[in-house]
Design a binder for these strands. Structure first.
Length: 645
RNA sequence: GCCACUGUAGCUCAGGGGUAGAGCAGCUCACUCGUAAUGAGCAGGUCGUCAGUUCGAAUCUGACCAGUGGCUCCA
């Protein structure tokens, strides 16, 4: 009996039932057969040696196909497990999936893996791969599966969970058999270019109440060039680490005496933070926002009303005693967010529909008691500064307001920094306030705004905040990493909980809707990402020190200070390095500190009223410019927020 | 919060049961220099904190604190 396969080019090929994708590839051509890694059958990835049973849409996957890379990595994980089992007999095996850029496998072993273990395991993996054992798929019944994995509690638990209608498949390569859905590469020999990266603990099933397993991470690629490019990318990322760069550039510190996750902004980092704050505040004012300032602590009742405390108490700092004159039971909390505060400003007087939208913005510090293990440089902190704003408007106005928020994002993130962005609509979570009707409406508003702005977006089902759906925006940095950026959230719950009202044209009270929105998110995280994005070399407008003026010798020192004064009065941030160090020494330090411009002044420049301009990172290609032209050029670069140098 | 690893001078790091070392940075002196480190000298540390073992602890043990990599979490 024959079956009909529809190939990607639309042609139909008739083959005998039970033919394998490998056979089909061979029929099509020897080149394809050689390059084949897996097949796609009716949209699902299949093993090359799994017999075809029915008519299907059919495609051969080669090493150029991203889906094939997942198969390779999945098989690499099995090879890893094979090697671990050979070196550590009896090691329990958890899960071993492909992940972005690589794979991991979780093991239940008596002691954690050492770096030496990893080297040995990697070595053994090479041997396992070289044996070129085929990956053999078998479908088994539940009893057989239980017998096969009788000595492996983790696998038995997994088998237990499989539904009765699910196919139980196992894959064997040489001595190693694993319960696995597949698919896999035809044989282990295809895994040639891989590297184990590190070992870390991970909970079984990701549940912190369950046992801890030892996870080994690795990466695998089809070609040596791809592997090397990836390792190079890791190295690049390491060199851009904001924690290291920030120390070098003296931007911030975190002091053990004060506590983890609490940032001390040194003068240079503080300058960057101030410039960004000013940037967003200027934009806010231009967009019709008002600035407000609100208290850092509040009676905790406020967060009872808002609904945050019952849900997020663990992440708030504990309550503080009341003031001496007040009753014992009154407790205060440091604020973890600003929304209830802004809500109270809205509520401080009666609002007319003519007043709406009311847009309140505040660059404000808030404190969240993040779990200690999650803290990471500037990217995850406990004391954070948000460029926060809340818009109170009618439900009819909400779509336009969201639209304007998206405009701000476009201006302040994409246009100013050149970041590419991706948008995600997050919908109602399980733990939520409010009924489904309200959620239907608010989700629809966000969706319409995105569609009207013609922004492509993905949907994160259940990813919304407990009080409303949101648009999360990620941006890509210079080396292609995605970062969590702006967030725009719609909220009909807080207006409800605080009983917010406006008087409508009908002279009746109505409930406004509320938009929470942050463009940079937190200044800490945003600056952390900017440091990594620019590798510490900020654009001129954002550089804490924009120009370093360097007289060649003492004879030009006074002249250098004169030039610096000139630059300074044009609003530029200037420093004169007239130390009695060699010119080379001072130039080097300017480069290391990533100052965008150095203006070197020798006798020739002094006499001609010019400077020798050295642009950061461009080495010896200096340019001699009259001082006025140099000033004009910098002022223009600052004004236009030029990205280079 | 959990698991593992790490903590020595301002920074990067070596050392290691008999009371501490390098390079850079800092200070002093000399050099006054044409685009990425001039030379010499000086100074600098309760070896994360607190206990324990020991004649003796920076070194061994434990607890705690902090950092790192993950897990988990992220209004």
């Amino acid at each position: 009996m024959n079956i009909r396969l529809t190939l990607p080019d639309g042609s139909v090929r008739e083959v005998a039932r039970g033919t394998t994708p490998a056979d089909v590839a061979g029929q099509i051509g020897p080149g394809l057969a050689k390059a084949a890694v897996a097949a796609k059958v009716n949209g699902a990835v299949w093993d090359l040696h799994r017999p075809l049973e029915t008519d299907a849409d059919f495609a051969i996957l080669t090493n150029r196909d991203p889906a094939a890379l997942d198969v390779l990595r999945h098989s690499s994980a099995h090879i890893l497990a094979t090697a671990v089992r050979e070196i550590f007999p009896g090691a329990g095996i958890g899960f071993g999936p492909p992940i972005e850029d690589g794979f991991y496998y979780d093991f239940d072993v008596p002691r954690p893996f050492t770096p030496e273990d990893l080297a040995e395991i990697e070595h053994r993996m090479v041997a396992v791969a070289k044996r070129d054992d085929p990956f053999v798929r078998e479908v088994v019944d539940r009893d057989t599966a239980n017998t096969r994995f009788s000595d492996d509690a983790l696998k038995l638990e997994r088998i237990e969970e499989l539904g009765d209608d699910e196919v139980i498949s196992v894959y064997t390569n040489g001595p190693f058999t694993d319960l696995c859905r597949g698919p896999h590469i035809p044989s282990t020999g295809l895994v040639k270019h891989f590297k184990l990266l590190h070992a870390a603990a991970a909970y079984w099933r990701g549940d912190e109440n369950r046992q801890s397993l030892q996870r080994i991470y690795g990466t695998a690629w089809f070609t040596k060039a791809e592997l090397e490019a990836y390792l190079h990318r890791l190295e690049e990322a390491r060199k851009r680490d904001h924690r290291i760069l920030a120390k070098q550039l003296d931007l911030y510190s975190i002091q053990e005496d004060v506590g983890p996750g609490l940032v001390f902004w040194h003068p240079k980092g503080a300058m960057v933070k101030w410039l960004l704050s000013r940037e967003v505040e200027d934009d806010n004012l231009a967009c019709g926002y008002d600035l407000v300032y609100t208290p850092n602590i509040t009676r905790e009742e406020l967060f009872q009303i808002s609904g945050h405390l019952p849900l997020y108490e663990a992440q708030q700092y504990p309550g503080m005693g009341a003031g001496r004159e007040e009753a014992e039971h009154v407790r205060y909390r440091v604020k973890p967010m600003n929304c209830p505060m802004h809500t109270l400003i809205y509520k401080s007087k009666q609002r007319s529909y003519r007043d709406l939208p009311v847009r309140l913005s505040e660059v404000a510090n808030v404190y969240r008691n993040e779990r200690s293990g999650t803290l990471h440089g500037l990217l995850r902190v406990r004391g954070l500064c948000m460029d926060d704003a809340h818009i109170f408007c009618t439900p009819e106005q909400a779509e336009d307001e969201i639209f304007l928020c998206l405009d701000q994002v476009d201006r302040l993130i994409r246009r100013t920094f050149g970041f590419e962005m991706s948008f995600e609509l997050s919908t109602r979570p399980d733990e939520k306030l409010g009924d489904d009707v309200a959620w239907d409406e608010t989700e629809a508003i966000l969706q319409r705004a995105l569609e009207r702005k013609e922004i492509p977006f993905s949907v994160d089902q259940g990813g919304g905040a407990f009080y409303g759906p949101k648009i999360d925006i990620k941006f890509l940095d210079a080396i292609g990493r995605a970062w969590q950026g702006p967030t725009i959230q719609l909220d009909s719950q807080l207006p409800e909980r605080f009983a917010l009202e406006f008087i409508g044209a009908d002279n009746q009270p109505h409930r406004p809707i509320m938009i929470h929105r942050a463009i940079y998110g937190t200044l800490e995280r945003f600056i952390g990402t900017l440091i990594e994005h620019f590798a510490g070399a900020f654009p001129v407008w954002l550089a804490p020190e924009q120009v370093r003026v360097i007289p060649i010798s003492d004879a030009q020192a006074a002249g250098a200070h004169g030039v610096a004064e000139n630059l300074r009065s044009a609003g530029l941030r200037v420093h004169v390095d007239d130390r009695t160090e060699t010119l080379n020494y001072r130039i080097r330090e300017g480069e290391v500190m990533k100052v965008p411009y150095m203006a070197v002044i020798g006798q020739r420049e002094l006499e001609s009223g010019s400077v020798a301009v050295r642009v950061r990172g461009t080495g010896k290609k200096q340019e001699i410019l009259p001082v006025e032209r140099f000033v004009a050029r910098l002022v223009e670069e600052v004004r236009t927020r030029a990205l280079s140098p």
